Simulated scan of single mutants.
Amino acid sequence: MAHPLMFDDADPLLRKVRAIALGFPDAAEKISHGHPAFYTTKVFAYYGGSVKVDGVYQQHEHSLLVLPDPDERSALLEEKRCYVPAYLGVAGWVGVDLDADTDWDEISELLDASYRRTAGVRRVATLDARQRP
């Protein structure tokens, strides 16, 4: 049985995440466990996550899950808007709650870091070639 969809395709925060994430070389989107997942060979970001508190999952519907550089992870988790997501947190992933005041430059940087950790050498070289003046 497939997971129910756990997002609204018209969500303006999802549209912003989607525009950034799909701008990376060879990036695509699929639905995984009811949430949008952005990937190349491996997933580099999810939209929406949850945490398990006292045996109950609390949804973070408007959040972005990324795999940051290990050096950045602890600093991110000190911020109130960040959390260790269920299932993926043990592998180093971080959830970032999004809202109207989100710093989209920072979100772009987090997506970039996560992409670089998962996309492979050829795709990262393509990304770097795009960013040169």
Rank of each mutant, 00 (worst) to 15 (best):
A27P: 02
V94R: 11
A86Q: 11
E61V: 10
L67M: 05
G48M: 06
T118A: 14
L22E: 04
P25M: 00
E109P: 00
V53Y: 01
D8L: 09
D54R: 05
V43M: 03
G55A: 04
E29K: 04
V90P: 05
K80E: 15
D103F: 07
A113S: 15
P36V: 10
I107V: 05
P70T: 03
G120K: 07
A91S: 14
D9L: 09
A37G: 15
D11C: 11
H35T: 13
Y57K: 08
L88I: 06
R116A: 04
L5H: 01
E61S: 08
A100W: 00
K30S: 08
A10H: 13
K80Q: 14
A119T: 11
R130W: 08
A37P: 15
Q131S: 13
D69N: 13
H3F: 13
E61D: 13
E72H: 11
Q131I: 11
G55R: 09
K52H: 00
A27C: 07
L111T: 01
T40P: 08
Q131M: 15
F44Q: 00
P36K: 10
G48V: 05
G34F: 11
R122P: 00
I107W: 01
Y47G: 09
V84E: 13
K16S: 12
R15N: 08
P36R: 02
R15K: 14
C82A: 07
A113I: 14
E29W: 02
A27L: 10
P25L: 02
L111Y: 02
D11T: 07
P70M: 04
C82E: 03
D54E: 13
K80N: 15
W104T: 12
E109R: 13
G92P: 10
A125V: 03
V124G: 06
I31V: 15
D11H: 04
E109L: 12
H62A: 10
L76V: 06
C82T: 02
A91D: 10
E72S: 12
V56E: 11
R132M: 07
I31K: 11
L76E: 02
D105V: 03
S50M: 11
A19Q: 09
I20F: 05
H3R: 14
A113N: 12
G34T: 13
D71S: 15
A28Y: 02
V66H: 06
P68F: 08
A21I: 08
D26W: 00
R116E: 08
D101R: 08
L64M: 05
R18V: 07
L67A: 06
K30F: 02
I20E: 08
D69G: 06
L13Q: 06
V96L: 15
R122N: 13
V96Y: 01
G48P: 07
W93N: 11
G23K: 10
T126H: 06
Y39M: 14
I31C: 11
A2Y: 06
Y46L: 15
S108G: 14
D8K: 05
D112F: 07
E72M: 12
G48F: 06
L5Y: 01
R18S: 02
E79H: 01
L64T: 05
E78C: 13
R116P: 03
D101G: 11
Y46Q: 03
Y47R: 03
L22N: 08
L110S: 01
K52T: 13
F24E: 01
M6A: 10
V121D: 09
A91W: 07
Q59F: 12
G92A: 08
D101M: 09
V17K: 02
P133H: 14
R15Y: 00
E78Y: 04
E78F: 04
